[in-house]
């Protein structure tokens, strides 16, 4: 009995740094940000309770609506393209190819580097008026424009940057594909199945659990995209708010306009949205994810 109590104490000793962090830096701040979201707070004077004012203001705010729209376009266009690219290249690499390790490295490098400021700077340049993309288009006699400075295209340059980083999802797909028993493909070949048929009837159903995982991870990451939009638009979300991503607006509200209450309200809306999104994906997954019997 005494020994057990002593061991509890030791266990809490091991947990202590984490517990302090959990209470002081996660749960405490979480609750306090919920409170702040109902206040006017500029960091210098003490918070003033305004009820749901921040939320109603946000829903009437044109820029807020734009930020939701931009983020949704980014997610709805970008996530399927990333997953599709990742899955196709993974399937190509999964056929006992020599130099697999080398290819995997090539495709993974963009994911490794893509989140950095350096690559965002590169992107700003290559999609600029004199950039690589327009040099390439000039070969075909097409006169390109400044893609990052055109409000119709700017968000698509950032989608391209996200899709370019499909490598980490691909590595996860590749690991999943290796788990599919070769015998399935062999007996399908004996029955005369075409490559497309094998993909549709064997690969696709058996990879759905990995697809679900990749889908959730990519969704969560995409909704929170920040660095690339910040660097490419030089912190403005421009031109004409066309790259005003949700987290960028949240940052501007909190740390440029010092409207911490609204920033906190946006953070809570983000949390609720991500929670709902994940729940919906999980709920629908039983209709399309195939778990082995």
């Amino acid at each position: 009995m005494f020994q057990a109590k002593k061991n509890y104490l030791i266990a809490y000793g091991f947990l202590l740094p984490w517990l302090i962090g959990l209470i002081g830096l996660v749960l405490g701040p979480m609750i306090s940000s919920l409170y702040l979201s109902f206040t006017n707070y500029d960091l210098l004077t003490s918070p003033e309770w305004i009820g749901i004012g921040n939320y109603t203001d946000l829903f009437g705010d044109r820029v807020f609506k734009k930020s939701v729209e931009v983020t949704l376009v980014f997610v709805i266009v970008g996530v399927p393209l990333q997953l599709l690219g990742a899955l196709l290249v993974a399937v190509l690499l999964n056929q006992k190819l020599r130099g697999l390790g080398f290819y995997r490295t090539i495709y993974y490098i963009p994911s490794l580097l893509g989140g950095s400021v350096a690559i965002a700077i590169l992107w700003k340049n290559i999609f600029g008026l004199d950039g690589l993309i327009n040099d390439f288009l000039a070969w075909f006699g097409i006169q390109g424009e400044g893609w990052v400075s055109n409000p119709n295209y700017a968000v698509y340059t950032l989608i391209a940057l996200a899709v370019w980083q499909f490598g980490s999802s691909m590595v996860i797909f590749l690991a999943g594909l290796k788990q599919i028993p070769m015998e399935l493909y062999e007996s399908a070949s004996v029955d005369g199945a075409t490559a497309f048929r094998k993909f549709k009837s064997i690969t696709l159903p058996l990879i759905t659990p990995v697809l679900l995982f990749n889908l959730i991870m990519t969704l969560i990451k995409s909704v929170q995209v920040f660095t690339s939009a910040f660097i490419v638009s030089e912190g403005t979300g421009g031109p004409s708010n066309s790259t005003m991503f949700y987290t960028l607006l949240l940052y501007l509200k909190g740390f440029s306009y010092f409207d911490m209450g609204t920033a906190a309200a946006m953070a809570w809306l983000l949390l609720i949205f991500l929670g709902l999104l994940t729940a919906v994906v999980f709920f629908t997954s039983k209709y399309w994810v195939h778990y082995g019997d």
Binding site: S32, I220, Q224, G254, A263, W268
Partner: peptide
């Protein structure tokens, strides 16, 4: 699973 933004303001 928690997005860091939810704790951002109070942490600051």
């Amino acid at each position: 699973m928690l997005p860091t933004h939810v704790t951002l303001v109070p942490q600051y």
